[in-house]
Amino acid sequence: MELIDLLIKIALIIVIFVISLVVAMYSTYAERKIAAFFQDRVGPNRAGPWGILQPLADGGKMFLKEEIIPTNATSFLFIVGPSLAILTACIGSAVIPWGQNLEIGGRVIPLQVTDINVGILYIFGVVSLGVYGIMIGGWASNNKYSLLGAIRAASQNISYEISMGLSIIALLMVTGTLSLGEIAKQQHGFWADGYFSWNVFKQPLGFLLFIVCAFAETNRSPFDLPECETELVGGYHTEYSSMKLGFYLFAEYINMFISSAVMATLYFGGYNFPFMDLIHSPNLVAILGVVALFIKIFMFIFFFMWVRWTIPRFRYDQLMDLGWKTLIPLAIANIVLTGIFMTFFK
């Protein structure tokens, strides 16, 4: 690899990293604002115009708070927990195709950090690592609420990963590839060969299963049992304070951003948008594609928040019932149906 290519890659990584942090930061603001709108309130409006400096104030507060490590906690693991949570949240964005290739001065710049041919499996690996952050943190706190939250998180994530994987299998049967770049490329435009090209129209049930599992994997309401403040004080982060708590909260929002990006890429055409063939300049298409992808991501993030402020939390047995007795059979049925459909109608 040439030096210039390496520099471009590093620049891209830094840009994506910064963007995911900024998006996560402003998701906290958007969450509070959107919650307020859903409840006929105005939301944060004191820090800066319309309160747009609120995330900075919150971040500053988190940094300045006293750092507390409980006496009976395992201090090394207590620090490893949130670090792992934020690390796994951040590395998920490496395989997401953010746009088509840019061409500047005869040099092709791919807007994807790395297009590995097992991109989806990589995402799965990262997502299942994410539960270790919560598990380690909850266990190291040496507190029953933390432990209960951590156990809940672990069993919830494991249960929902299965149906998530099964819903993905049906998608893979349609696309025939595991590479996210390739999947995004296949959904070119909006209409192709007499049918919609986006996967959501080919796998509606699969998408439904995937989005339900994504809610569970990111520990968002109605599946926010790991932190369940009405039962478990704060769940796995009960004992955490200052920036370590901030990391846990931040990791949740980064996860939300990444899972929105994955959903947009897998099912909603990624960077593709309708009538993209009418634009002839490839660079313009690439840039508009990035904009389109971000619009889709923000719609998903909005949907996450919309659901959070609408649906009450599940009871734990209901959660397990839904995961094992409903989602997994449905996902298997979806695979079978997809198989039948592909055999007879193609």
């Binding site: 959107i34 307020a36 709108f37 859903f38 006929d40 309130r41 105005v42």
Partner: peptide, 8 residues
């Protein structure tokens, strides 16, 4: 409710 005027 999202588009209602806040009562605050």
């Amino acid at each position: 409710h999202f588009f209602k005027k806040p009562v605050t």
